[in-house]
Each structure stands twice: as C-alpha cells, then as structure tokens.
Design a protein around this nucleic acid. Structure first.
Lengths: 79, 79
DNA sequence: ATTTGATGTAAAGTATTTTTTACATAAACA
DNA sequence: TGTTTATGTAAAAAATACTTTACATCAAAT
C-alpha cells in the first residue's frame, strides 16, 4: 500500500493508443519493464523512475514532458 | 552498496555553477531534498526519481533533457 | 589560530519503484 | 465450447532512491 500523493501524472495510455498500436505487454517488452509496471503507471499508481520515464517517452516517440506532467504549483515560493 | 550502471548522467553541477549561484545546500532546500542527495546526484551515483528530476530542472531553469542525459543507444533494436 | 561555510565520504535505515506470481474478466475466434 | 489475447486486481519480495547522522577537508574570513 505504498502511496504518496505524486505531483506527476502521465498520458501513457492515451498516447500509446493514439499514436501506436502497442499493447501494454508490447510496450513493457520494448522498455524492458514488466506488464504490471505499465499497468500500474497507466492507472496513475505511482511515478516511474527517471530512466523508465525516458524509455517510455522514447518508445512512444514523444518528449518526456509530453508524456509526464509535472505540476509545478507545488514548487514556487521558496526563499 | 546499491548500484546499477545507470544510462543516465546529469549536468546538475555544471548548470548550478554556471547559471545560478546556488550552493548544494540551497539547491537541496529548494527542491525539498537533502544535501546528501544533491551531492550523490552530482557525483553520478544514481539517477533521481522523475519527480526530483523535474524539480531540479525547474529550479535550474532548464528543460529536463538538458539537465539529465539519457543514452538511448541502450534501446533501439527491439522487435 | 579558530571559526564558518561549502564540499566530500560513509553507512544504516526508511521510502518508493519494479518484479514476480497468481488469479479474474471480457472479447475474438477456431 | 473452449482457446487465445488483452486488460485488470492483489500482494509479497527485490531493487533502487532518499534521508539521517556523523565525521573529514579545504578555503575564506575574523
């Protein structure tokens, strides 16, 4: 039950379906992760490692910022 | 001694010194990490989480791909 | 000379991500 | 009908990232 309110969401599923004909399994194989990991990420369970994020963006053919959305409103205002 | 040969390197130190006058401690405080984490990252000990990578790039004022370099030659060739 | 700030090494513990395994449901189709 | 493919839930174990604590070195400044 690990869960922190991550400030990152992703568009993996949308992009995977819109821009590729990859299944979750095929995407997993290409990025060298497991199907469960892709499934969990698409369900926004947690954010991937930086390396996996790069691999996924690479395979989906999008820049990382298009696939993974960082909400910077958590930041700001720091002296 | 956890260590995998990461395919990711970073330019945190170079950019921090060239574009800001932040110390490791100040950068750590702004991204809400510890100084040890920044130190380890600058020493290329491991890659940060995606969230921390976004935060660091944000504070350094650079896109994430400019700060963190992914070597995609590990990828490619996958049927 | 000694204090202060910045950087560095080290290592144990905590938190988070990823894998592994097992089982469920629904659609497509022989 | 029964088999295969794709997606889903669940949970324990393994791997990796991060924190916490402690101490070391060097440069700058008082």
């Amino acid at each position: 039950m690990g869960g922190k309110k991550t400030t990152i969401t992703n568009h993996i599923k949308r992009i995977r379906l819109a821009r590729t004909d990859l299944t979750q399994s095929e995407l997993a194989r290409r990025v060298e992760a497991t199907r469960q990991t892709i499934l969990a990420l698409e369900a926004q369970k947690y954010a991937p490692s930086l390396e996996l994020a790069f691999r996924i963006a690479y395979v989906l053919g999008e820049p990382i910022e298009e696939v993974f959305i960082f909400d910077s409103s958590d930041m700001e205002a720091r002296v």
